[in-house]
Design a protein around this nucleic acid. Structure first.
Lengths: 339, 339
DNA sequence: CTGAATAATGACTTCGAATGCAAAATAAAA
DNA sequence: TTTTATTTTGCATTCGAAGTCATTATTCAG
């Protein structure tokens, strides 16, 4: 209709012959408005093409209707799905996603700066590293945070996690049941908390089965780094019979490297397991045995907790942990008896 | 510092013994402030923990500093990277990303509603379907739009595209050079514009080489749908020697299905090509021959064009098309002479 | 039909920063 | 030193919707 100026509630009020307050009330639920004015306002609003200005509303209500989602760039093929699920659930609760990409610790300050100025209602941080100091800043600013797959030390922030211990224990048990004795671990990036936790859990689970001093190589979660880690190990060492990888993508890299450059058959000569349950694990050439994170539940919980904390900021931080599901693929077989 | 109330520019002004205007000017570039007041204000601002309220600023400046990015949920493994690149480039230009997930045409109205009320500065739409009507709505609301990999009919909106025609012509030429005569096309979802365009380009390119009436099956871009499409074709027909797929993921599905359930070797018995250049095409088990989209350039152009249109809304819409790069994998070989 | 209880309405203020404009302070020129 | 040009500064207003509160219209019981 009108090209240049935006239509405001005053315009509608005037055109409908009511007060601006009346217009405002019509667009808010649970406000006392007579049927007659409601219809009149709605009609003229439609006619003029009026849409409430969210910015002005934010200013007065002190609710931005936006949640900051901080995405670490550490490539995890699950994140697109996680992001999409979070977005869906948040918009169902009438919150929008303001997206931030965290590259390195350096960029964090910038992001935090943005978050304060944008008055977001809350924050969901995906696999990003937050030290206690940052978390305290959120407290100071009264902005609730939910960490996704990352525990806050001292329960200072809520978090939703996949139970890496349980998942890796299951994977290790499976390998142990298959009589594996010679292991290699390909861990994720050393700076990543999740990677570190998975590593620790792997080592502990192996130790409980009597496998000590298991060698570790590190990758950066990428396919290439998986290949490289395995290749490097093989240069100077004997082939293991089982490889435990910090994520699926590296596991797939290990499989390809083993097959292509070392003539090993998976799973006959080498068993490989991953972690995450990304969609590619189902691809026929791999059929990776892995543990799938319950993304549906985890994202739902993350959003629920966050909204609860937004409504009642004094509620204590909570931690919810979900078990992963073992996906029995085709990359684990009994260890060859080398005797 | 202070727990409950937010610090405003008035608080800082009072504490620093200056006017609110002065505080405001200190936090704006290119405003005339004396060195003395600047330092005084900056010091007390820091002391009180003052951060300008972006919401209030938006209201008065009529610039939200936010760009809506609409992501179609049609799974394309490229999108995480595209999203990340867009985010980086936008934040470099001091714009934040407000993320929307478009599931089906139905959800579009909701999203548009949000976009109007949130007063975003501009919109980047990834592979989402926009009819002319929607695009006109953006015009009415004076919000510039850049379509990513989707052309607007009648140049009514700017767009940044990968040149599907060129890419598919190269792929088809490659197959034709390898003497293929019997083709199958596995297209993307019929509702998708990009999928449709790729399909048309494939058919045209094939026709130019003298291959007419090439059969088409449809998938939804997923791995499973690729397998299914190929399997369905094979149930009632003779095996083709070459398959042209609407994206990489389906191509990988076709490869697996051909190998696993029909005993076909790729590329000896069957050549397969994809489109997109997702990272998985490099995985050893596939080494898919495909065309990679120049994401770096495309995202940069998208952001540049959008910002230009935000600054000068009357500039005409522009279209920028980028050639894809042929990635010669290992899934194309000379057709077997069936004589 | 009257009075009490309830619902609907509008005038006015608020949120917090940005800006036009005029006044004040400073610097530069004469 | 005086005058003129320039830079700083603060006042008052603006952005657009929401909330407070007092007032008016409506409903309902007696």
């Amino acid at each position: 209709m009108n090209k240049n100026k935006r239509v405001t509630s005053y315009d509608v009020a005037e055109a409908a012959g009511v007060s601006q307050s009346a217009v405002s009330r019509v667009f808010l639920k649970g406000r006392s408005v007579s049927k007659k004015t409601r219809e009149k306002v709605l009609a003229t609003a439609k006619e003029l093409g009026y849409k409430p200005n969210a910015i002005a509303r934010m200013l007065i209500t002190k609710r931005s209707g936006m949640v900051a989602v901080i995405l670490s760039s550490r490539a995890n093929l699950n994140y697109p799905e996680v992001l999409s699920l979070l977005n869906k659930r948040l918009s169902a609760k009438n919150e929008r996603v303001l997206l931030f990409n965290l590259d390195d610790a350096d960029g964090l300050d910038d992001i935090l700066e943005q978050i304060w100025t944008f008055q977001v209602d809350g924050v969901i941080a995906l696999a990003a590293h937050f030290d206690n100091d940052s978390i305290n800043q959120f407290k100071d600013h009264n902005i609730p945070v939910v960490l996704y797959n990352r525990r806050a030390s001292g329960h200072s922030a809520s978090s939703v996690c996949c139970n890496h211990e349980q998942g890796l224990t299951e994977l290790v048990s499976l390998l142990d049941d298959n009589n594996h004795k010679s292991y290699l671990i390909v861990g994720g990036p050393e700076q990543s908390d999740v990677a570190q936790e998975r590593l620790d859990c792997s080592i502990n689970a192996l130790a409980q089965k009597g496998h000590h001093k298991v060698p570790v190589r590190y990758g950066d979660y990428s396919y290439e780094s998986g290949r490289l880690a395995f290749a490097e190990w093989m240069q100077k060492n004997k082939a293991p019979t089982a490889v435990i990888c910090g994520n699926d993508t590296m596991a797939i890299g290990v499989i390809d490297e083993a097959r292509e450059n070392f003539g090993l058959n998976v799973p006959e000569d080498l068993s490989v397991v991953g972690f995450d349950g990304v969609s590619a694990v189902a691809w026929h050439s791999y059929r990776l045995t892995t543990v799938k994170q319950p993304l549906e539940q985890m994202t739902k919980a993350a959003v629920d907790i966050l909204l609860e904390q937004i409504e009642s900021p004094d509620n204590p931080a909570q931690l919810r942990v979900w078990s992963g599901t073992l996906i029995p693929g085709n990359t684990v077989a009994p260890a060859k008896d080398e005797s």
